[in-house]
Design a protein around this nucleic acid. Sequence first.
DNA 1: TTCACTTTGTGAACTTTTGCATAACCATTA
DNA 2: TAATGGTTATGCAAAAGTTCACAAAGTGAA
Lengths: 216, 216
Amino acid sequence: MTQQPKIPRATAKRLPIYYRYLTFLHDAGTNRISSAELSDAIKFDAATIRRDFSYFGALGKRGYGYDVKALLDFFANVLDQDSLINVALIGAGNLGQALMNFNFHQSSNMRISAAFDVDESRAGTILAGVPIYAMTDLKEQMTAQRINIAILTVPQEVAQDITDQLVDAGVKGILNFTPLRVTVPTDVRVQNVDLTNELQTLVYFIDNYGSITTGL
Amino acid sequence: MTQQPKIPRATAKRLPIYYRYLTFLHDAGTNRISSAELSDAIKFDAATIRRDFSYFGALGKRGYGYDVKALLDFFANVLDQDSLINVALIGAGNLGQALMNFNFHQSSNMRISAAFDVDESRAGTILAGVPIYAMTDLKEQMTAQRINIAILTVPQEVAQDITDQLVDAGVKGILNFTPLRVTVPTDVRVQNVDLTNELQTLVYFIDNYGSITTGL
DNA sequence: TTCACTTTGTGAACTTTTGCATAACCATTA
DNA sequence: TAATGGTTATGCAAAAGTTCACAAAGTGAA
């Protein structure tokens, strides 16, 4: 509900990648960078990078490139990096626990601040620094902690049911690790991460095409 | 190196999803399915589904739909589901171990059959049914076991170095969980899975656009 | 200041992907 | 057998995304 006129979806998906690499450059003390150098590092075509940036205005200088600090500050604002975003994790199984240990907060403004699990005996404990709640407390906790993003790492069989509960609890975004393609109202966004699919796609491409980076 | 004339990339990425849902339908005893019903379940536009299928020929029957068994058999062949594909995992940390437990084999023809880790003390042990090797044995084992696909879950700092080793060991596909966008020869395919990026993209979309499923 | 060089920003062409809309076709029932 | 209804396959067009290629503009050195 903020923002510029309208950024193409494909561009939007690249923004966090730009942001991360700019952070790296800044930490390394680099002051300037050209679209060609960026292209080498992050593997997007230089013209694509320039066009992406140009959607936000003329951020570079001809004959010079882009000022790292200025660009970083700009994108920090675009991506709202100042505010800390709390995210809930549903399903503290293998993958769920790995994600809790993953520490998103290290490289972004997000962190898993609450986890929920069906196993009631876990409620009240803390895993990887994240408090575990019972599923029955979902709506209450989500509301109280004002969380509107959830990471879904539950068994496929209960994915839709829990999704419905999440929607009921006011969630607006779901990062879905389930292979089930859940149904949600139009004002809720689902981002699917399908690990088996990624692997199978990779295999298919290797067998039928040849080479070159894909994904993202 | 098998296959049809040339399937669009976007279609190729959807194939495993079709395959999985067809498996589900078949297991459930469903004999026929229309593109409209498929669309409901997997959230791709019905016309997109029909067009995807049509790249492989006329697989459906007008006025009837698609025969689940026939379609399943067809895609099993396209995706080479008969042969078991062994995959190596590099970096048995949090995420790596979670992926070992994930058991790709349950829902696909792939399995992690070897894992490698810098921690030499782990070499020789078995984790989640997967034998762990020392990094120094990489090339030898990859060659011996004829593995040409690797899942990369190592710290960013060593990602490029290990990627080079993988390439040297003959790997043709890398599922890269590292945020580093690694450099590889053109005959090697990299599929990036960037968890932080997925979350940040989700947040950006929620804040700046509104709703509807993305990803895959 | 001048000039050679670098690099952006962007029009335009191109490629890829999606989706509409409908003719053709098949299933099914009477 | 004929009529009804459902569903595919696909021509076409629009939308989205990528890349070329170059004028414009600024850099940096002499």
